[in-house]
Design a protein around this nucleic acid. Sequence first.
DNA 1: TAAACAACCTAACGTTCGTTAGCAAGGATT
DNA 2: AATCCTTGCTAACGAACGTTAGGTTGTTTA
Lengths: 223, 223
Amino acid sequence: MNNLSRKDQIEQTATALFKSRGYAATSMRDLATAMGLEAASLYSHIKSKEEILQRICFRMANEFFEGLDRAEKTIANSTEKLRAAIKSHLTVLTKQPAASAVFQNEWKHLSEPFLTDFQKLRYDYENHFRQIIKEGNTSGEFTVRDEKMATLMLLSSLNFVHTWYKPEGKLTPEQISETLSNMLLNGIVSGKKRDPTPNPSEEGNFEITFSETGDQLKQIHQN
Amino acid sequence: MNNLSRKDQIEQTATALFKSRGYAATSMRDLATAMGLEAASLYSHIKSKEEILQRICFRMANEFFEGLDRAEKTIANSTEKLRAAIKSHLTVLTKQPAASAVFQNEWKHLSEPFLTDFQKLRYDYENHFRQIIKEGNTSGEFTVRDEKMATLMLLSSLNFVHTWYKPEGKLTPEQISETLSNMLLNGIVSGKKRDPTPNPSEEGNFEITFSETGDQLKQIHQN
DNA sequence: TAAACAACCTAACGTTCGTTAGCAAGGATT
DNA sequence: AATCCTTGCTAACGAACGTTAGGTTGTTTA
């Protein structure tokens, strides 16, 4: 029905569960039930519960980094580099919203040495963004009063997208990236009227923020 | 040593633990150890583990709402109303960063009917922000291309502050609010040079984003 | 001075947890 | 035809979980 390996199917199902219930609150029996089998059977495919989390976290870290590396090769000014980095981040995030949520929220349950390794990756990633901002700032291309805070606000805004993004929505990842980039660079609000297109996301991509608990996953892989 | 009731001390300690380890991964024995007593002893003061979470979540919901109500009474234009709302939100958040983090991240572990009640509150709160943005937009005071996305980005930016905010830092909540408001309204980046004060938070308020796992809590209330 | 209360203890309950051992059926490979 | 590999099962392990029962102490109230 689906050309993923059994292990990858387990990972996929676990990702959905980890996102909606959290890693610690998801039991192996929950996962097994969602897969339509017994808890012990999972261990034919995986070594441990944590191995699943590790695979999700480090796979996503890789994807975010690969995208960023590609974006940074854009030969352009800092503003365009920043736009490209934002777009890359949102592309990865919107392609795998559940895995991104787990990556964002559940990494703290990694055990050593994975935890430290992961934190290092996160820090490096963040630093790339900070660096782009710093370059544009010192070169005078734009002015950022507080580079640290700007970096953190930027990543915060991007990383919360998994909270409301719905793949079924009308906005493409490109449109989201476009809008969000503009809001981040120019402010969510602008004094003068621009393109009068009102509320493009009115029927799109959103669920109300709080509904991340919604747990529609049932027996996805049952036969 | 501290004029909180024993119950409030437990709540305080639990808040720190829930923040750093997550609700589900924090056991009553963890909490008891942090308080310097036995797990069973906690039940002289509280009815259940979840009661603690309920108290934290709904108390914070109240505080955020009270602040917002006060801010909305500001008779001013939409921009000033928005600034006041942002400031109020950040005031509550920076005064109780740990409780805010729990409020943000752990509410999904509430059971019914508390979960539904809580979600309603969150939705209402979000709606107040959306309303302010809408008013400014339709009155022509400013232009927002996408009200929904603007609201979500705004709240995302604010709510991630607990991730990096350190009370010991140099920036006061007012300064954070000021900077963040400007970034949100005008963009993190600006084309023309403004006040040349560079990086006010350079030695301040931050820890690197990923360190929210840091778990320095030990025996706080041990005699 | 007796009663009430707050704070904590030990012991233990039933349940759930992640995981292991050992086995069986079916398909693919040799 | 024999072998292996994949996929799943039942049964069970020891540990950890949230919580209750019942008792002891010292302090406050009547």
